[in-house]
């Protein structure tokens, strides 16, 4: 996923001289080549997320398209008011790349986890949110972000450092991974791999899920609503707090469309973890272990 980001950004910067990349001192082993190739269009503004976002707004108000890169918790919280006023309220052509979201920096604890970024950014009108699951979706998110003349938030996770799709994808719609008739399983981000394992496990019990990857978190697509209407049992999975994330979006869609369905949300519980651990350990602790998900789905179906 990281390499897909670097490659896409490099291509876009080659193609369009109006693109500037700004980082608030993040991007070790990410931006070295871009810095060398585009020295005048790459800025490291230091560890100043707040001023950096306003500075980026100034560049964008002057006609540049800006990609701003920082760790997800810092981009979505440290400078939220700047994102709200200077980027979203001005509806600027700025792309916010939140790296290492979810439990990506598993050893570092809550200061570096991106647990709430979707819930927070989702409240800002006019900001498109992508949560890609793999390198193919990351490339597609970057290409789509370039076409959108407005603010975009792309949520990167280490779980997304994988290549799942074999072909190019339409990032604006749920992407079919497995066809089934026993329930709808909607996933955002890198946990798609885990969802595939869950789906495979369930096949042993003759349960066949309709599994989709849903990289477009906001705005929601018509295709997504059509899917919700066509299924009775719905499951969501995300590496994000259960409050205000993708599952909440689905819950709202269900209510808004008056659908008689059963929704089960798999997400991180509403509490802080105070332990260290591997990604698998943290997900297990959060109730997102493969067996735990499989058992819950089995009971419901």
């Amino acid at each position: 996923m990281k390499q897909a980001f670097i490659d896409s950004l490099t291509k876009l910067m080659e193609k369009d001289k109006k693109i500037i990349t700004v980082t608030a001192d993040m991007g070790f082993s990410v931006f070295e080549d871009i810095k060398k190739r585009f020295p005048k269009r790459f800025f490291n503004t230091g560890i100043t997320e707040q001023a950096s976002i306003s500075f980026v707004a100034g560049l964008s108000l002057s006609g540049y398209k800006v990609y701003f890169y920082a760790q997800a918790p810092f981009i979505s919280m440290r400078c939220l008011e700047q994102v709200r006023l200077d980027i979203a309220y001005h509806h600027l052509d700025v792309k916010l790349i939140g790296s290492n979201s979810g439990f990506s920096l598993n050893q570092y604890g809550v200061s570096h986890y991106g647990l709430e970024d979707i819930a927070i950014i989702k409240t800002l009108p006019g900001v498109t949110i992508f949560a890609p699951a793999d390198s193919v979706e990351m490339t597609a998110s970057m290409e789509e972000s370039y076409k959108i003349k407005g603010p975009v938030y792309i949520r990167m996770t280490k779980t997304g450092n994988q290549t799942i799709h074999k072909n190019n994808v339409d990032i604006n719609k749920p992407i079919l991974i497995n066809e089934g008739k026993d329930g709808l399983f909607l996933v955002i981000g890198g946990l798609l791999n885990r969802a595939k394992e869950v789906t495979a496990s369930l096949k042993k019990y003759n349960i066949n899920l309709n599994l989709y990857s849903c990289p477009l978190v906001k705005p929601t697509s018509r295709a997504l609503i059509t899917l919700l209407k066509a299924n009775k049992k719905i499951f969501t999975l995300e590496e994000h707090t259960i409050i205000g994330g993708f599952g909440s979006t689905i819950a709202n869609l269900i209510i808004d469309n008056n659908l008689k369905v059963r929704l089960t949300k798999f997400a991180l519980p509403d509490k802080y973890l105070h332990v260290s651990g591997s990604m698998d350990y943290l997900l297990d602790q959060s109730g997102l272990g493969i067996d735990s998900i499989v058992n819950k789905i089995k009971k419901i179906i």
């Binding site: 001023a51 100034g58 108000l61 540049y64």
Partner: peptide, 18 residues
Amino acid sequence: SAGHGLPIGAGMAMAMKL
């Protein structure tokens, strides 16, 4: 909101230089 205009201005000054 206090503290926004100066950094926005700095970004614009940078854009003029570019």
